[in-house]
Computed example of a mutant assay.
Amino acid sequence: MPQSWSLDWSHGQVTVHAGAAALGRTRFRLEDGRSVEPFHEAPWITAGETVEPGLENLRGDWPCLPFGRLYGADDPLVGAWRGLVDAPLPAAAHPLGASDRLLHGFSAAAPWTLVSLTAEAITLGLDYPGDSPIERITRRIRPIDGEAGLDVSVEIQVRHRCIRPFGFHPNFALCGEPGSFRIEPGPYRFGLTHPVAEPAARARPDSRFSALSDVAVKTGGSERFDRLPFADDREDILQLCGIEGGVHLVDEHERVAWDLSWDTDKLPSCLLWMSNRGRKFPPWNGRHLCVGVEPVASAFDFGSVIGAGDNPIALAGVRTAIEIEPETPLTLGYRIRGHALAGG
């Protein structure tokens, strides 16, 4: 059994797993006395199935460094994005090591070690391979005393100056009827649909939008993408670029609202991964249902080559990677807080 650590606080219990330092089942006690568990856990975890590294710990949240994966010529990117898969890297993005080629980086595939477990926080650490400019990442999970909330952070140390896309990956369970889970983001400069010709996607690739309630679709016209789960099977990724403050989530099924907030100067976008039973191949098998609400400095899930370069989002003035200096470790984080809805 993979190792995990748990911490109780005044308003719940949080569990963190060694694999990917992923948040496991986390219980929040709301002000009306109810306890809720908002985070998703992939069905293959519950079933005890063996899957590829990077997917075996698909739980409530984990840090992704670098965020995404390296896309290549065989991936069906469209528009201006297609020519970026082999674009030259900025000097500070070199070298790309084997850990840059993993899905969501070494942090998502490796076992972490416990640094400390106190009454206030769980802290885990991970040393990166020697061929990576990243030296070490430390992750801290701190419950907010007296509230149904958590502060989640990482500190990143590097061997030399480097540029990499980064993201947190909070995944929320979708347990209610279609449309019962609402996404209400803070103001953002513009939204983009995934610029990939993905058969399982509903949104028209590489389309700009200004409201989640009005997103262009491949069949013509537009549809709402702010009410989940969808009635039909699909797999869509949208990016809210230049977001301010964070995202408000309303789960009518569980009668709870969640506020996800972070420093949007450091992580200026929110990636929305709408996994709605659209992937029919193993290990997904048409059974995977969740929404990722992901604070990122990234260009979609395109990894270090595109994220660190001059892609359309970066050229529009929204950073798609973080820069880290060896003398100055970088700290990134987010906060989640839950509140009962009236009548819950």
Rank of each mutant, 00 (worst) to 15 (best):
L238K: 12
D259E: 12
E252M: 01
C241V: 00
I243M: 02
D226E: 05
V250W: 15
E235N: 08
R255E: 09
G220C: 05
L228A: 06
V256Y: 12
K266H: 03
R227A: 15
G242M: 13
T264L: 07
F225Q: 01
A231N: 04
L240K: 15
R224E: 14
S261D: 02
D251M: 07
D263S: 12
L238C: 13
H248P: 06
S261E: 07
D251R: 00
E254Q: 14
V250T: 13
D236Q: 06
W262N: 01
S222W: 09
K266Y: 04
C241E: 00
L240W: 09
E244T: 15
D265A: 06
A231L: 08
L228D: 15
V217S: 05
D265L: 04
E235M: 04
D232K: 05
E252V: 00
F225R: 00
E244S: 14
W262P: 07
V217P: 01
R255M: 12
T264Q: 08
E244L: 05
A231G: 10
F225A: 04
G242I: 03
D232P: 00
L228N: 03
E223M: 05
I243E: 00
K218V: 11
D259S: 10
E252N: 03
S261N: 09
G246F: 08
R227N: 01
H248N: 04
E244Q: 09
V256H: 10
I237K: 13
L240Q: 13
V217C: 06
T219M: 09
G221P: 07
T264I: 01
V250I: 15
Q239I: 14
W258G: 00
W262L: 08
G245V: 06
L260G: 04
S261C: 09
H248S: 10
E235R: 09
E254D: 15
T264F: 02
G220Y: 07
H253E: 15
D259Y: 03
D226Q: 05
Q239R: 10
L240R: 12
A231Y: 02
W258I: 10
D233E: 11
W258V: 09
I237P: 04
C241M: 09
V250F: 15
Q239P: 00
R227W: 02
F225N: 00
K218G: 07
E254P: 00
T219L: 10
L249A: 13
A257R: 06
T264K: 03
E254W: 11
G242T: 03
L238N: 01
E254V: 04
S222P: 00
F225I: 01
R234G: 11
E244M: 05
I237S: 11
V217G: 05
P229C: 07
E223Q: 14
T219S: 15
P229V: 06
G220V: 13
G245L: 06
T219V: 02
L228G: 12
H248Y: 13
G242E: 04
P229Y: 08
E235S: 12
D226S: 02
R234I: 11
I243W: 00
G221F: 14
A231T: 12
